[in-house]
Design a binder for these strands. Structure first.
Lengths: 240, 240
DNA sequence: TTTGGTAATAGGTCTGACCAATTTGAAGGA
DNA sequence: TCCTTCAAATTGGTCAGACCTATTACCAAA
């Protein structure tokens, strides 16, 4: 097989890169330069198109992709808003889960989530700073102060766990686990008349905090497993 | 506030909102129904637009988003091709990371991957059947029979790990870990002149197999950690 | 058989228009 | 003054048609 590539010396391979890709780069640089934070609004598509010298179609293509990646959120009539900050060096790694025909989706998803959650606790125990500790403790105390312990759900519980993810100092943990929690919230039909549902995991929150405070990765793993095993029991008991 | 909507009885309000979302659903159903596999080509955008009764813009919007998620790959002049199969029930969890370089990206991704991989090994140790065991052993023997141990890369190594994921009897493990491996393959630039690269993890493959064979979840976790810690060392050593 | 060119195919971009939801702000009434 | 009401401006969503560029298929000539 002869090599038909005619690589003539001194001839550029020709840029050829697509418009929408360039626009994404430009938007990323703009967001970075403007120090935009989540919640900020981007300029209108028409203005961006004119400023970059491209058609609105190309702007929309780029915005559409960034929206699919969870970076931007266009709202009709309001504008396009930033959900997560990015820079020109941001790397995207989209994951997808096929839940079709998956029985016991919650249990199977929880198993994967447990692995990630355990690793996050281990990382938090290794890397937590004093500042992380303060935030975790504040969230824990607020959660414990509520009359009815919320256990495995509710904003106070969420805040505590988010503080752990942040203490791991690996943003992937928070991003992934937030989406796993969304998945649970979407398929979790909380049984009526049981306000104490998913509260068995309550005591493990403090022991987990203590493990991370003491920088004991092994104990952090154990307590996280106890916590999630308790959630697993609740899911199993939920079934009709 | 009066209702000015002229809702004529018998006329459907027609969800004009979210065309691209509808198109994505339709495409997912189509791909599912046609039993398309990675590498297959989708119908031309113009045909899809006509078939669905929407403008090509809406088709492009949907394709653009699916491309950003790594599902489709449009090639100029050739057509749009399927990279990963999806169904109507696929959930997407895109991640993004601002990295301080390649090493940082790989280490952060490996940390998450380790959590999932550990949990998969534990599940495999608990649930593996005799049949799983046969497949795992065959893959292990084939891998060991190669003159140069491949260690953390290569098709033989991949086959062994896939057999473990399957032995966990939770399809989410394989789905997620395959995508993590894709990521590593994409950014992992194997250094020249080091054919034995990433081979330090080689001996742990057998010990991991034995742990799963003996249905020892704790040992399976330990061996998996050793294996991935070895990979971590390789990444750290990768620096120029 | 190989080469070279032409037409058909298919994604990429552009233009301009209109639709629908939201926001804004001024007119009007309590 | 304060609030309601409503029309206009703003902004993202969709549509239509055209043209460009890259790829592929096919056919004719050497």
């Amino acid at each position: 097989m002869k090599d038909r590539k005619k690589t003539i010396a001194g001839l550029k391979p020709l840029p050829q890169q697509g418009r929408s890709e360039q626009v994404i780069k430009a938007l990323a640089k703009f967001i970075d330069r403007q120090k935009m934070v989540p919640g900020d609004r981007l300029p209108p598509e028409r203005d961006l198109a004119e400023a970059l010298g491209v058609a609105r179609t190309s702007i929309r293509e780029a915005v559409s992709q960034l929206a699919a990646l969870g970076i931007l959120e266009p709202r009709i009539g309001s504008g396009t808003f930033l959900l997560r900050t990015i820079t020109s060096d941001t790397v995207y790694m989209p994951l997808s889960l096929d839940t079709d025909g998956l029985e016991d989706l919650l249990l199977k998803a929880l198993e994967v989530r447990r692995g990630i959650e355990v690793e996050a606790s281990i990382a938090a125990a290794k890397r937590r700073t004093e500042e992380d500790l303060h935030r975790m403790e504040a969230a824990l105390l607020h959660m414990e102060s509520l009359f009815k312990p919320e256990g495995g759900s509710g904003p106070a519980d969420l805040a505590f766990h988010l503080s752990i993810y942040d203490a791991a100092h690996n943003p992937l943990f928070r991003q992934l686990l937030e989406q796993f929690r969304d998945l649970f919230q979407r398929f979790w039909t909380r049984p009526y008349g049981r306000p104490d549902f998913a509260s068995n995991s309550f005591p493990y929150h403090r022991t987990l905090f203590e493990a991370i405070r003491d920088q004991d990765p092994h104990k952090a793993e154990q307590e996280t497993r106890k916590l999630l095993n308790s959630v697993e029991d609740d899911i199993r008991m939920m079934k009709p």
